[in-house]
Design a protein around this nucleic acid. Structure first.
Length: 894
RNA sequence: GGGCGAAUAGCUCAGCUGGUUCAGAGCGCCUGCCUUACACGCAGGAUGUCGGGGGUUCGAAUCCCUCUUCGCCCACCA
C-alpha cells in the first residue's frame, strides 16, 4: 500500500480488496474484533426474501444498520450484526411458479417433492447473490452466523414454538372465514390482505316476500354472493322492518325460501337497512349465521368460480362474470332497484394483488390476545423506544385491535405444519409433534401429515432467538439476547417487528430489542415507491459499480432524515449519487495532500512525550481547527446516537470540506512548504484532525476511510479503522475565543474576495489591503494570521493603520473592523459610494428596528435579561459598523 | 369513516426547547478562474409573502385554532 495515490478516486480498485481484508481478519465477528470485552450490541438484519436480488430499499435498510453497527463497534461494543435470508413462502413459490409457467408447466405437473426441489435450486442462486450484494455495499455483518429461515436449526425452533403454543391452547384449528387469494390458492392473514380503496358499485336488489305481499330491498357490493344467501337481516330496533322479522323471502334466481331475522350487526342507516346474509362468503355474515344457526352455502370454488352449489347456469362462471349475469337477471326480472357508485376498501393479495375472496375453510390460528397483552405493556412501561416516536402509536393501536393470526397456508414451500391426523377408523386423533410421526401415538394406526405449510412470518417472528440457537441454551443466546436496535421499513412493523416482540416476550421473557428505528421508503421523484412493476427501480450494484459503495451510502444517508422518505431519480443516477461520489473524491484528494506532506510520524498533539506539541506552539488557525474538530466529534456522536444519521453525515461533511479543506489546508500550506516556520506543528494538527475526521466518517463511508487511514505513517500492518477507538470529545480543545477570532479572519478574507470579484481584479493579481479598527484584541488576532490573510485573499501587502486613501473598495466586519483595498484607477468612486450607501441603509434600518425593540418597555421588562443584553450588544455593533461606513463614505467624498 | 404526518429557494430537504446559526444546506442556475490535493475543483453571486387566514406572546418558520393541498396507517356500513 505504498504506491502513489491517483488524483481521481477510483472505488472499484480498492473496495473488493478491502472487504476481503476485513473478512480475513474476522473484523465482523464480535469474538474476533473485541475478544471477551465490551458490552454486546446486537442488530438483527431483516432477512431479505430469497425471491430476487436486492433493490434500493434494501440498500437503505442495510446501510443504516451498517452505519449503526460500525459506530458501536468503534465505540468498543461487542457488535453483532446477525444476517440471514427468508424463505418467503408465498412470494418465492409464486416466483418459481411463474418461471415454470414460462416453460408451460404448473407445480402440479411436477408434484410436491420435485417442485420444492426446484424452489431450492432458485433459492441457492438468489440467496448467494443477495449475500454478495450486501458485501458489495460494505455490510459488516457476521457472515459466520448467517441463517436461512428453512435451515434445520430454525425449523426446529418453529416446531418447538408450534407445539408449545398448541399445548398452551394458543394454537388452534378453526373453521372460519379467512382471506383467500384465488390466484395463489391459499389463505392469507389479515395483514397480508392489503386494503385498497376502489370505486365500485352498490347494487340495490329486491327480494320478494314469500307470500307475495311485497318486497324487501337489500344493498350489496358483491351481488354474485346472493347465490349463497341463507337469510336477510335487519336491525332489531328498526321500525320499518319489525313486522317482517320471522317471515320469509323467496331468493330470486335460486328460488329458495330464506328467513328475515333481526341482528345487532346491521346498521339501519346504511343502504336500505336490510342486509343479505351469506355466511360462507362474508365475515360479518358468518358471525350472524353462527348466532342464528344459519346454514352456509359455499357457492365458490377455490379459483373463485361459481361452484356446483349454485344453479347450473351459473356454475363455472368466474366471479365477475357471475356478477354481471346476476345483475342482468335481476334487471330483467325488474328486481334491480338502482345502482349506486360506491367507493370502498377491498382486500388485495399482498403478493399478487388479486382481489381477496373471503372464504370459509379450516385453518390453523394463533390466539393473539394473550401474546399481545405483554407486548402492549412493554411499550407502555417504556421498554420500547420507537424512532420516530409516533410509530409507537401505530404499534399500540394494532395490538389493541389485534385479531387471531391465520398461520396455515395452502402452499408447498415452507415449514410443513407439524400435525398428524390418525387415519384409522375409530381413533382419528390429531397429534402435534416435535418429531415426524410414522404412526398414531395413541392407536398405532397410520397417520397423515397436514398438507399445509406455515405462514412465512411464523419462522421470521422467532429470529431474535432462533438465530442464536434457541431452543438450546447456547452461549450465543446467553450473550446476544436480548438485542438492541431493530432497523426496519415501516411496512413490516406489523408483519414482523410487533410479532417478534410478542414471541420474544412469550418465549424469552424479554423484549428482543429496545430501539426500533423505522426509516423511510425509497421513492422516485414523483414520490412513487420504487418497484419492479413500475420499472422505476435503481439497481444498487449498478450504482456501486459506477459511483462506489461509499458514494451510494453517503447519498442514501444524507438524503434521509428520521422517518422521512428518500427520493432518488431513477432516470438520473448522476443527480442522485454525484454528491456522494464528489465527496469521496474530495476526501481522497485531501487525504492525498495530507499524507504526502506527512514525512514520517508526526509529533503527538498532546501527552507527556518529550516531543509533544505544547499548547503555546499552536497558532490561532491550529486552535481553531482543533476546536472545530472537537465540536464535530460532539455533534456527530450525538447525532449517530439519536439515529439522526443525516445530521451526523452533514456535520462531518461540513468539517472536512469547508473547515479542513477550504480553510485549514489552504492556510497551512506556507508552513508545510517551509515558507513560514512551524511545519512540524502544522503536520501534527493536520494528522490528528484528519485522523479524527476519517474515524467519524467511517460508519458512513467505510471503504475510502479505511484506505486512507491505513496509509498514515507508522500504522501497523493489521490496524483497521473499523476497530479504531471512537474519537472522544476533549474539553481542552474547546476554544470559543479561537472560533470567534478565526471567524474574523474568515470574514476579512471573504470581504476582500468580494471586493476583488466586484471590481473585476484579475485572479492572479495581488492587491494591497489596509485594516483599521478599534478592538485591539481582534486586531491582534488578525495580525497573528497575517500570512493566512495575505495568502487566501491574494494580497501583496496587508497593513494595519489609519489611512487617508480615498479610492478603493471597503468592507466592514461584524465587529466593526474595517478593511480597505486601494485599487487606484480601477475603482469607480460612484459605484463604491452606492455600494457603501446600500450597506449603510441596511444598517440604518437594522439600528432603527433594534432601537424600537429596546425602547419597548414590554420587551425590556418581560424578556430574560440575557436576551435583552444580547440585543443591546447587537445594537451597539451595528451602530459601530454604521459609523465606520459613514466615515468611509466621507473619505471617499460621496 | 377513524388516526397520524407533511407543506420553507427551481428540485430534495435541515431548521429539535419561541429570541445568535433564523431565513439555511446540497443540487441546479449566473459570473470569473485549468491557483503546484481535487474542474468530481476554487472564488463570488441571484432566488423565499416559511401553503392561506386567524389567535397566543414583548417576540412566531417554530405554540394554538381553522381552511386548502398532498402523503401514510388503520377500518367487517353490507
Amino acid at each position: 500500500m505504498t504506491e502513489p495515490l491517483a488524483p481521481q478516486y477510483n472505488p472499484s480498485t480498492i473496495e473488493a480488496g478491502l472487504y476481503r481484508w476485513w473478512s480475513e481478519h474476522g473484523l465482523f465477528s464480535p469474538e474476533r474484533h473485541a475478544p471477551g470485552s465490551g458490552e454486546p450490541y446486537v442488530i438483527m438484519m431483516p432477512p431479505p426474501n430469497v425471491t430476487a436480488v436486492l433493490h434500493m430499499g434494501h440498500g437503505l435498510n442495510n446501510t443504516v444498520q451498517d452505519v449503526l453497527i460500525r459506530f458501536e463497534r468503534m465505540r468498543g461494543r461487542r457488535a453483532l450484526w446477525l444476517p440471514g435470508t427468508d424463505h418467503a413462502g408465498i412470494a418465492t413459490q409464486n416466483v418459481v411458479e411463474r418461471l415454470l409457467a414460462e416453460q408451460g408447466f404448473t407445480r402440479f405437473d411436477l408434484g410436491r417433492d420435485a417442485f420444492v426441489e426446484r424452489v431450492w435450486e432458485h433459492v441457492r442462486v438468489t440467496g448467494a447473490a443477495i449475500l454478495d450484494q450486501l458485501k458489495a455495499l460494505g455490510c459488516s455483518a457476521d457472515w459466520s452466523r448467517t441463517y436461512f429461515t428453512l435451515d434445520e436449526g430454525l425449523s426446529r425452533a418453529v416446531r418447538e414454538v408450534f407445539v408449545r403454543l398448541y399445548d398452551q391452547g394458543l394454537v388452534y384449528r378453526g373453521h372460519y372465514i379467512i382471506n383467500w387469494c384465488p390466484r395463489c390458492l391459499t389463505a392469507l392473514s389479515n395483514e397480508e390482505a392489503e386494503k385498497e380503496e376502489v370505486d365500485g358499485q352498490l347494487w340495490h336488489l329486491r327480494y320478494p316476500l314469500a307470500d307475495g305481499s311485497g318486497q324487501l330491498t337489500v344493498a350489496t357490493t358483491r351481488p354474485e354472493t346472493m347465490l349463497g344467501d341463507t337469510a336477510v337481516a335487519v336491525h332489531p330496533e328498526d321500525e320499518r322492518y319489525r313486522n317482517l322479522v320471522g317471515r320469509d323471502v323467496r331468493l330470486p334466481l335460486v328460488d329458495r325460501l330464506i328467513p328475515i331475522m333481526a341482528d345487532d350487526a346491521v346498521d339501519p342507516s346504511f343502504g336500505s337497512g336490510a342486509v343479505k346474509v351469506t355466511p360462507a362468503h362474508d365475515p360479518t355474515d358468518f358471525e350472524i349465521g353462527r348466532r342464528h344457526g344459519l346454514p352456509s352455502i359455499d357457492i365458490m370454488t377455490p379459483e373463485a368460480r361459481i361452484s356446483l352449489a349454485a344453479p347450473p347456469r351459473f356454475q363455472g362462471l368466474d366471479r365477475y362474470e357471475a356478477r354481471r349475469r346476476v345483475v342482468a337477471e335481476f334487471e330483467a326480472a325488474g328486481l334491480l332497484e338502482r345502482v349506486e357508485q360506491h367507493r370502498h376498501a377491498v382486500g388485495h393479495c399482498y403478493r399478487c394483488n388479486t382481489v381477496i375472496e373471503p372464504r370459509l375453510s379450516d385453518q390453523w390460528f394463533v390466539r393473539m390476545e394473550p401474546l399481545a397483552r405483554p407486548a402492549l405493556a412493554a411499550y407502555r412501561d417504556g421498554k420500547l423506544r420507537f424512532v420516530p416516536e409516533r410509530r409507537g402509536d401505530d404499534y399500540s393501536a394494532w395490538l389493541e385491535g389485534i385479531r387471531d393470526w391465520c398461520i396455515s397456508r395452502q402452499l408447498w414451500w415452507g415449514h410443513r405444519i407439524p400435525v398428524w391426523y390418525c387415519e384409522s377408523p375409530g381413533c382419528g386423533k390429531t397429534s402435534v409433534s416435535r418429531t415426524d410421526l410414522e404412526v398414531c401415538p395413541s392407536c398405532g394406526g397410520p397417520v397423515r401429515q397436514d398438507e399445509d405449510v406455515l405462514d412465512t412470518w411464523f419462522s421470521s417472528w422467532l429470529v431474535p432467538f432462533s438465530s442464536l440457537g434457541w431452543p438450546d441454551r447456547t452461549a450465543d443466546l446467553e450473550t446476544f439476547y436480548p438485542g438492541h436496535t431493530m432497523v426496519s421499513a415501516p411496512e413490516i412493523l406489523f408483519f414482523w417487528v410487533a410479532r417478534m416482540i410478542m414471541s420474544g416476550l412469550h418465549f424469552m421473557g424479554q423484549v428482543p430489542y429496545t430501539d426500533i428505528y423505522l426509516h423511510g421508503t425509497v421513492r422516485d421523484t414523483q414520490h412513487r415507491k420504487m418497484s419492479k412493476s413500475l420499472g422505476n427501480g435503481i439497481d444498487p450494484l449498478e450504482v456501486v459499480e459506477r459511483y462506489g459503495a461509499d458514494a451510494l451510502r453517503y447519498s442514501l444517508i444524507s438524503g434521509m432524515s428520521v422517518g422521512t422518505d428518500v427520493i432518488l431519480d431513477p432516470n438520473d443516477l448522476e443527480a442522485s449519487f454525484a454528491a456522494g461520489r464528489n465527496f469521496a473524491n474530495k476526501l481522497w484528494n485531501a487525504g492525498r495532500f495530507i499524507l504526502s506532506n506527512l514525512d514520517g510520524t508526526p509529533r503527538p498533539l498532546a501527552g507527556d512525550g518529550a516531543n509533544a506539541v505544547s499548547p503555546d506552539e499552536l497558532t490561532l488557525a491550529d486552535r481553531w481547527i482543533i476546536a472545530r474538530c472537537d465540536a464535530t466529534v460532539r455533534e456527530a456522536t450525538d447525532a449517530y446516537q439519536r439515529f439522526r444519521l443525516n445530521d451526523a453525515a452533514g456535520a462531518i461533511y461540513h468539517f472536512i470540506w469547508s473547515d479542513l479543506a477550504d480553510w485549514y489546508i489552504e492556510q497551512v500550506k506556507p508552513r508545510l512548504y517551509g515558507d513560514v516556520p512551524g511545519g512540524d506543528v502544522a503536520r501534527a494538527v493536520l494528522s490528528q484532525t484528519f485522523d479524527v475526521a476519517l474515524r467519524l466518517l467511517h460508519p458512513v463511508m467505510p471503504f475510502i476511510t479505511e484506505a486512507l487511514w491505513r496509509r498514515f505513517p507508522g500504522r501497523r500492518e493489521d490496524a483497521s479503522i473499523s476497530i479504531a477507538p471512537w474519537p472522544r470529545p476533549d474539553s481542552r480543545a474547546r476554544a470559543p475565543e479561537a472560533l470567534a477570532r478565526f471567524g474574523l479572519v474568515q470574514e476579512l478574507v471573504s470581504g476582500i474576495r468580494v471586493i476583488r470579484a466586484e471590481y473585476g481584479v484579475q485572479p492572479g493579481q495581488a492587491v494591497r489591503a489596509v485594516v483599521t479598527g478599534e478592538n485591539p484584541e481582534n486586531l491582534a488576532a488578525l495580525r497573528e494570521e497575517q500570512a493566512t490573510i495575505v495568502k487566501l485573499a491574494k494580497l501583496s501587502d496587508l497593513s494595519f493603520q489609519e489611512t487617508s486613501d480615498r479610492v478603493g473598495g471597503h468592507a466592514v466586519l461584524s465587529d466593526g473592523t474595517a478593511v480597505f483595498v486601494p485599487l487606484g484607477e480601477a475603482i469607480d468612486v460612484g459605484q463604491e459610494c452606492s455600494r457603501l450607501g446600500s450597506e449603510v441603509d441596511r444598517l440604518i434600518r437594522l439600528v432603527e428596528s433594534q432601537e424600537k425593540k429596546l425602547g419597548n418597555q414590554q420587551f425590556v421588562s418581560r424578556a430574560p435579561a440575557e436576551v435583552v443584553e444580547r440585543e443591546r450588544q447587537k445594537l451597539s455593533t451595528w451602530k459601530e459598523q454604521r459609523e465606520v461606513l459613514l466615515k468611509k463614505r466621507e473619505l471617499l467624498g460621496c
